[in-house]
Design a protein around this nucleic acid. Structure first.
Lengths: 103, 103
DNA sequence: ATTTCAAATCGTAAAATTACGATTAGTATT
DNA sequence: AATACTAATCGTAATTTTACGATTTGAAAT
């Protein structure tokens, strides 16, 4: 079987493997949080499709949704976001434990 | 349509979205390069399946294969590897332009 | 000219992904 | 109670991914 780290990293990478999910996350990074409807207006996709992408991001653990009907407010899941970041840093040999780093 | 950066990042992320591809890349990072057969021995997958994963990594631009039959030697494509790294750094707000950085 | 060997490709089946329209759920308003 | 609104879920079709065994390729060795 695969290493735990590999599986977790692959899982996060999979969540990032569609451009609309990348841009949804960028939106959430900038706006800190927003509603499903906001994203439906930004992207040229059906409401159900956006909902599906949000669900995948949620399943991967990268976002979380706070629902107070009829609206749902999404934001980055900071804990898992940090883990994804850390796994990627590790994978790409980017050492953040030292005070300096460069590519 | 999506932003060019989003599409490129999604493309790289997709290449990383399977644990065996993560581990193949780790192998290539450590060993600097290796043959298809080496990987077939490491992972519990058929030779044709490994070949297919290698092809995907090659199509994504993350590795390159130098073939001198009957063997093929693979290694990281440094140029695109650096691009993937840079796109991810950018995406995760990890600023490498400064001399110091931390999570 | 055969045989051998590593690796790619082919053909195929099962499963997952992506997208959509239609429906449902759940609250707030009229 | 009926309506309105947002968002999730359902059902479905088309495409892509993942995996395998079998075959082919291409150079080297016999």
């Amino acid at each position: 079987m695969y290493k735990k780290k590999s599986k977790r990293l692959a899982r996060y990478a999979k969540a990032l493997s569609h451009p609309v999910r990348i841009e949804i996350l960028e939106l959430l990074e900038n706006e800190s949080c927003c509603f499903t409807g906001d994203m439906v207006n930004v992207f040229p996709l059906a409401q159900s499709t956006i909902s599906q992408h949000l669900k995948e991001l949620k399943n991967a653990g990268l976002i979380q949704g706070e629902l107070n009907p009829p609206k749902t407010k999404y934001c980055i899941n900071q804990e898992n976001w940090a883990e994804a970041k850390a796994l990627l840093c590790d994978f790409f040999d980017m050492d953040f434990s030292k005070s300096t780093c460069s590519i």
